[in-house]
Computed example of a mutant assay.
Amino acid sequence: MGDLETVANEVIQKHLKDPFDYEKVHFEVLSTIRYDPLLYSGGLSLPEALVCSPLDQSFFLFLGYHVDRLNETAEFFELPVRKLDSSLLVAQLSQALYDKDVYQAHKMRYLLGKAGQVEIQAIPIATPLNLDINCPPTWTVYLDSEPTIISPFTSFKSTYRNHYAEARKRKIPPDVGNADVLLFNHANQITETSICNIAVLRNDKNPLTGEIITKWTTPPLSSGCLCGVTRRYLLEKGLIGEGVVMKNSIKDGEQVLLFNGIMGVVKAVIKI
């Protein structure tokens, strides 16, 4: 996955003209984790597993990736917290589900404050999980009309989302469902959308054979995008690769992949 702190510092040096002072910004570190009984892969029957405390780790999508990202984010912002491990995170998440319908999928909003305080919100969801990149297009993505200022708040997931909210307000028509906005930085490099990482189909040359291959390409972290957990999963599975994607290469009507840690993968059509 690479050293997120190194990448974040590279982003700061490359994209920010003014010194960055996160102390002046009110925010909490955020990770949104999918709890889903359909993910369970333990040896007990589902009813037996759902009364265990804590719950089995397999109920939580990409749990280890969330642990890694939360630890690296807390370290970057120098938050006064002890290092998380999977057991501790599962215990915290299981406690937050204590009085909830555990047969229902939930979005777990893990919030870590500047003073080290933890809050977990369990929100029921009906969003199905999909990890198949060969899905039909069901979303629309509108290319933003203005660049987004890149900062640690685009490299690290937090509750400070003004830049995302402004982009959505600029481009997504009211009352349009399954829609997102595609962002780019001041170097005219595509970065991500307001709630997802993205991959586009691009041609690449095999350095050994010279053969041209078409592959799903996601912007590198150095562009200023979030290190998403589903992005990491798809990279490690070899289903996508990294590469710079320029804004002027985006075409109206082309299909792209969107992915995050709650819905997994969806396919979308670009609208310029």
Rank of each mutant, 00 (worst) to 15 (best):
residue 121 Q to A: 12
residue 181 V to N: 06
residue 263 M to C: 14
residue 158 S to Y: 00
residue 18 D to K: 13
residue 271 K to N: 14
residue 66 H to M: 01
residue 243 G to P: 07
residue 24 K to V: 06
residue 226 L to C: 12
residue 3 D to K: 12
residue 165 A to V: 12
residue 259 F to L: 04
residue 144 D to M: 01
residue 145 S to R: 11
residue 121 Q to L: 13
residue 234 L to T: 07
residue 75 E to H: 10
residue 153 F to I: 05
residue 105 A to S: 14
residue 246 M to D: 14
residue 97 L to M: 11
residue 126 A to H: 12
residue 150 I to T: 11
residue 73 T to N: 01
residue 112 L to Q: 08
residue 255 Q to T: 13
residue 238 G to M: 04
residue 222 S to G: 11
residue 8 A to F: 10
residue 137 P to V: 11
residue 156 F to R: 06
residue 205 K to T: 14
residue 252 D to T: 07
residue 25 V to S: 07
residue 101 D to Q: 03
residue 237 K to L: 12
residue 237 K to Q: 15
residue 39 L to D: 05
residue 19 P to E: 12
residue 121 Q to K: 15
residue 130 N to T: 10
residue 180 D to Q: 12
residue 116 G to Q: 09
residue 170 R to S: 07
residue 99 D to K: 14
residue 223 S to K: 05
residue 25 V to P: 06
residue 224 G to W: 00
residue 221 L to P: 05
residue 77 F to H: 04
residue 22 Y to K: 01
residue 218 T to H: 03
residue 150 I to N: 07
residue 177 G to L: 10
residue 227 C to T: 11
residue 57 Q to I: 08
residue 180 D to S: 14
residue 203 N to M: 12
residue 158 S to T: 15
residue 139 W to C: 00
residue 96 A to P: 10
residue 253 G to Y: 03
residue 153 F to L: 04
residue 116 G to E: 04
residue 240 I to Q: 07
residue 14 K to T: 12
residue 244 V to P: 00
residue 93 L to T: 10
residue 40 Y to H: 03
residue 221 L to N: 03
residue 240 I to T: 01
residue 20 F to N: 04
residue 75 E to Q: 11
residue 215 K to F: 13
residue 192 E to I: 06
residue 154 T to S: 10
residue 28 E to V: 02
residue 109 R to M: 10
residue 176 V to H: 12
residue 141 V to H: 05
residue 270 I to T: 06
residue 2 G to T: 04
residue 263 M to F: 15
residue 216 W to E: 02
residue 143 L to A: 09
residue 164 Y to N: 14
residue 263 M to D: 09
residue 223 S to N: 00
residue 189 Q to Y: 06
residue 172 I to C: 09
residue 97 L to C: 09
residue 253 G to D: 02
residue 74 A to K: 02
residue 73 T to L: 07
residue 110 Y to K: 07
residue 218 T to N: 03
residue 154 T to V: 00
residue 256 V to Q: 12
